[in-house]
Simulated scan of single mutants.
Amino acid sequence: MSRATIYSIAEICGVSAATVSRAFNRPELVSPEVRARILSAARELDYQPSSAARGLVTGRAGLIGLIVPDITNPFFPLLVRAIQRTADRIGSPVMLVDAEESAAAESRMVKQLRGRVDGVILASPRSPAAALREAGGDLPCVLVNRTLRELPSVVCDNTAALYDAGEHLYKLGHRSFALLAGPSASWAAARRSQAIRRWARGREVELIELGPFRASFKGGRRAGEALLATGATAAFAFDDLMACGVLAELHARGVAVPGERSVIGCDDVLLAQTVTPALTTVSAPFADLGRTAVEMLIRHIEAPGATPEQRRLPGAFTPRSSTGPARTRG
C-alpha cells in the first residue's frame, strides 16, 4: 500500500488538500462536520500529518535548523539530543549543520538556511556579532551559550559553580593555579576565564594564564605540556575534552593526577565520567538548555517583534577523582 497523503484523504472526502491541512493545523477554520469526515478518513488510512502538509496553510517549512561549531566535541551531541527531543514533541524535525569551527562557514550556513527552515538555533557560535546579525536577517534565531542584545539567548552560567570549584581546590591546599583558556572566538571561554580570574583575585592566589588552546583533545595535550612548565599545582581547563587531553599528557610524562597535579574540566560530558581518574568538573544542564532554546525559538517564530528573551541557567560543581590535596614541596 502506498503511504497516505493529504491528497488521498482529500479525494475520499471530496474536499481540497488545503482543507485537509487546515483540519489538522487550523481546525477552527473547518466546519465540525467536514473535520470529522477528514479525521475519520485519516484514521482509516493510518495517515500521519507531515511538515509539508502543515506548510500548505501555515506557510512554514515545519523544520528547525541547528548549527554547532564542532560536532566531534562531546558537548554538542548531548545538546543536540536535548534539542531534538523537545522539537520532536512539537512535531518539528531538526536539520543539523556542523560549521567545523569556521566562523565564515557558520555565517554562510545561516544564510543558506533562509527559506528552508522556520528558525535556527546557533550553539556556541564563533562568528563576530556583526556577521551573525547580517547572516540572520529576518530569520528567527536563538543563541545557546552566546548573547547578543537583539537576539533571544539561553546560556549556562558557570560563575557560581567555578567559584565552588576554586574553593574546593583552595581547601585542598592549592595556592598556585593555571587557567587553560579555550578558543579566543568562544564567548563561553571568555566568560569562564573571567569567572576564574574574579575568584582568584578574591582569594589572592597565583593564577597563571596559558593559551588559548583549541577545545579538543590535541589542544588539551598542548595545554598539559604548558602546565608542566609552570609551578601550578592545579588547573582549570576550558572544557572536559581539553581536560582529558591534559590528563593524557600528564600521564604520558609520568605525572600523577591527583597526586602531583589536580585538574578541573567543565560541562560534565560522558567522557568526564568514564576517563581515569574520573574528572572533577562543572555540570551543564543540557536538557534544560535544549528545551529552553526550542521553546524560545517557537515563541520568536510566532511573535518576531517581541522583546528578545535572555535566560541564564546555572551550572553545578561536581567533584570527582581528578582533584586532591596539593603536593608538598620538600
Rank of each mutant, 00 (worst) to 15 (best):
L179P: 05
L180G: 01
A181R: 15
A181T: 15
G182Q: 09
P183M: 08
S184N: 08
S184Y: 10
A185I: 07
A185V: 08
A188V: 14
Q194A: 15
Q194T: 13
A195Q: 05
A195W: 13
A195D: 07
I196S: 03
R197M: 10
R197Y: 05
R198I: 00
W199F: 14
A200Y: 11
R203F: 12
V205Y: 07
V205P: 01
V205R: 09
L207K: 09
E209P: 02
L210W: 12
G211C: 09
F213K: 01
R214T: 10
A215K: 04
F217I: 02
K218G: 00
R221S: 12
R221E: 15
R222V: 12
A223N: 04
G224E: 06
E225R: 14
E225S: 13
L227K: 12
L228S: 01
L228F: 05
G231Q: 14
A232C: 03
T233W: 13
A234T: 10
A234W: 12
A235K: 03
F236A: 07
A237S: 13
D240A: 04
M242H: 04
M242C: 05
A243W: 13
V246N: 06
L247Y: 11
L247A: 11
L247I: 03
A248D: 15
A248H: 14
E249W: 06
H251M: 06
H251L: 11
H251A: 15
A252G: 10
R253S: 12
V255Q: 07
V255R: 10
A256R: 14
V257F: 09
R261V: 02
R261L: 01
R261S: 00
I264W: 07
G265C: 06
D267A: 13
V269R: 11
V269H: 06
Q273D: 12
V275D: 04
P277A: 01
A278N: 05
L279V: 11
L279T: 11
